[in-house]
Nucleic acid binder design. Structure first.
Length: 592
RNA sequence: GGUCCGGUAGCUCAGUUGGAUAGAGCAUCAGCCUUCUAAGCUGAGGGUCAUUGGUUCGAAUCCAAUCCGGAUCACCA
């Protein structure tokens, strides 16, 4: 905001001086490096050449012109090697502070009227959530909230993968091996219960295949002929035919899973405005393909299968209907994309899906463009990298998958241990303690997964777990708690309007400069669809505050005026920290 | 093989619309709790920004080639 103000004023001053138009792209303005005097710096090199002036000449006339035009904003300048460093008047920061120290919506944008759908989470109902799902959930939720803070109307959705061969596997295994056990009788969370049968299926299947191979069959034959696999195929057919008994089992087992998911979602703070079930959407898209076939968007091969030719776009031919007329994965995605538009009239659609589906999403967007879906150009795949272990990828076969519930439990336990060791909240009631552990444990985990740019894969070390010091969620939470502690002891006297004295100290000013950037940061994170921008910002702000806190006393400030100034800076810092963290889905405690 | 993504300190990561001496955290070492919460602060060491070449006043950032790692290119989802 201030940077763009400075840019405007520089462009205007240049036009006055040289009698020709300038835009903000003709030069750069950035924050002055701490080792130089000044607050913001105009880089002169790009102008020097076209204006045929030395950097010193240009800097001097520009600096003087700016001072003359805006004596209320600039107090002075210096020129070092082609960099024009401008100093901003303290009053600018004072009025920013006075207007916003109690403004809870500081930095947020006004309504844009744009409607965005964010699809995330999208679990399979045959196994519980793991660490990778957590990255997805945290990203999706955070992006949705960031878009809201930037004035968009957001619809959070989730597509539940509740049908298909993988679901039948756990259903069959339950029929064969459970003896009628239920989550209630085994006292197990429903999603874990069902997930165990999925594992049991794979164990049984693996054994059958091995037996058949040692009986002389080839690997492919064995996999096809395995009785348990054939039974599963049959079950899928029965499901598609609507066989009552199969449907009943399917519904029952899915309900178990949903009960488990709900618990986890509630705990990690995921919520959705609209949930789609694949069992209700998997037939969508076929009509569209038929229409597109007439229009020549798709074509039919001799065997009757239907394809789209994307070679002109640098991709391959892609199947959209099998030769028997049934859909493939992408077909229903096309249908669902249209349904979303019919139901909500969305302007943009964001899919939070792992990077292994980059190609799929590229194809989906292209097809949507070709069939003329109105918002097709604004389909965006928020692609994120896998969460890996130090030993490599998580593999369910090798039992190295980090379970979501387990890791959340573990984070809580660590939070509890640290809290007990420090002994600062011994007067808390048990419920408050529980809530605090949740806030800190989950805060550490969410921050850890969100602080990295989404598209990068990341390494999670369960041995070292998540740290609670340094560039972490608890560090920021702790900073917030420290501020709140001050504000409980000293209240702001709103009759103070002037902060006379000896001007702003460097750390006071650093804080104000950071706070001022919050609006830009929110915009940037929305444009880039990248929560890590906010995570990094919040960390830097907290770090600056902690330096300030160690260096200067608020309550024992030199003068009452200074105290009032610092109280306001502290209060505003708390608001911005809290607001930033909320957009990451992280709560901040009053005490910890 | 085609396409896409990544390679920055011992480790995990910032920094890429080209700008001043490349930054954090962790780990290591040295300091700081009679004063607002030490989950904190201050300082030190640690770098051929994968490699090579190019573009220019200036390149971690842009271009080209190469090397390494990953994803994907299913009548699976």
């Amino acid at each position: 905001m201030i940077v763009s103000q400075v840019k405007e004023k520089v462009a205007a001053a240049l036009e006055q001086l040289f009698n020709q138009p300038f835009t903000e792209k003709d030069f750069q303005v950035n924050q002055t490096k701490p080792e130089f005097e000044g607050d913001y710096t105009v880089v002169l090199f790009s102008l020097v050449k076209s204006l045929k002036l030395s950097p010193d000449q240009l800097g001097n006339s520009l600096g003087n012109q700016l001072l003359k035009n805006h004596p209320d904003l600039f107090t002075g300048f210096n020129i070092i090697k082609g960099f024009l460093n401008l100093s901003i008047k303290d009053e600018f920061w004072f009025s920013l502070l006075e207007e916003n120290f109690a403004n809870n919506s500081f930095g947020k944008a006004t309504a844009t009227g744009i409607k965005v759908m964010v699809e995330y989470s999208s679990p399979n109902t045959n196994k519980p959530l793991h660490l990778g799902h957590l990255r997805n959930n945290f990203l999706g939720w955070s992006i949705a909230e960031i878009l809201k803070a930037n004035g968009n109307e957001v619809i959070k959705t989730c597509v539940v993968n509740d049908r298909g061969i993988h679901i039948c596997k756990s259903m069959l295994a339950w029929k064969l091996f459970s003896n009628g056990a239920t989550p209630q009788t085994t006292n197990q969370k429903g999603d874990h219960f069902v997930g165990d049968y999925y594992v049991k299926f794979n164990d049984a299947y693996k054994k059958e295949v091995e037996d058949l191979i040692s009986a002389g069959q080839s690997k492919e034959d064995a996999e096809r002929n395995s009785p348990i696999m054939q039974q599963t195929q049959e079950m899928l057919k029965k499901w598609e035919a609507g066989d009552p008994e199969t449907m009943e089992l399917w519904r029952t087992m899915n309900q178990w899973v949903y009960a488990g998911f709900d618990e986890t979602y509630k705990r990690i703070g995921s919520d959705f405005d609209r949930i789609y079930y694949e069992s209700q959407t998997y037939l969508l898209g076929r009509d569209t393909v038929q229409e597109g076939l007439k229009k020549g968007i798709f074509f039919r091969k001799e065997d009757g299968s239907v394809w789209i030719d994307l070679t002109a776009d640098g991709l391959d031919e892609k199947l959209v209907l099998r030769k028997d007329g049934t859909s493939v994965y992408i077909t229903q995605d096309i249908g669902l994309a249209q349904d979303k538009y019919r139901e909500y009239g969305i302007d943009k659609s964001i899919y939070v899906i792992g990077d292994e589906q980059n190609y799929h999403m590229k194809v989906l967007k292209l097809i949507c463009q070709k069939i003329g879906l109105p918002y097709a150009d604004s389909i965006y795949h928020l692609s994120y990298g896998m969460v890996e272990l130090p030993t490599g990828k998580m593999k369910s076969r090798e039992g190295t998958v980090v379970d979501a519930d387990d890791i959340v439990d573990e984070m809580n336990a660590i939070a509890a241990r640290h809290t007990a060791e420090l002994g600062k909240v011994q007067d808390f009631a048990p419920e408050s303690l529980k809530e605090l552990y949740d806030t800190i444990g989950l805060g550490a985990l969410k921050f850890f997964l969100l602080r990295v740019e989404p598209k990068k894969k990341m390494v999670f070390n369960p041995e070292e777990s998540v740290d609670f010091h340094g560039f972490t969620g608890p560090f920021i939470q702790y900073t917030h708690a420290r501020i709140k502690s001050i504000l409980r002891k000293e209240s702001i006297n709103s009759s103070y309007k002037n902060y006379d004295g000896n001007g702003l100290l460097p750390l006071e000013k650093s804080l104000l400069i950071s706070l001022e950037q919050y609006g830009d940061i929110l915009q940037q994170s929305a444009t880039e669809l990248n929560p890590s921008v906010i995570a990094i910002f919040a960390f830097n702000l907290a770090k600056t505050f902690n330096s300030f806190y160690a260096e200067h006393s608020v309550m024992q400030a030199e003068t009452e005026s200074k105290k009032q100034l610092r109280l306001r800076i502290a209060a505003m810092t708390a608001i911005v920290l809290s607001s930033s963290m909320r957009l990451l889905g992280i709560r901040v405690p009053e005490r910890m």
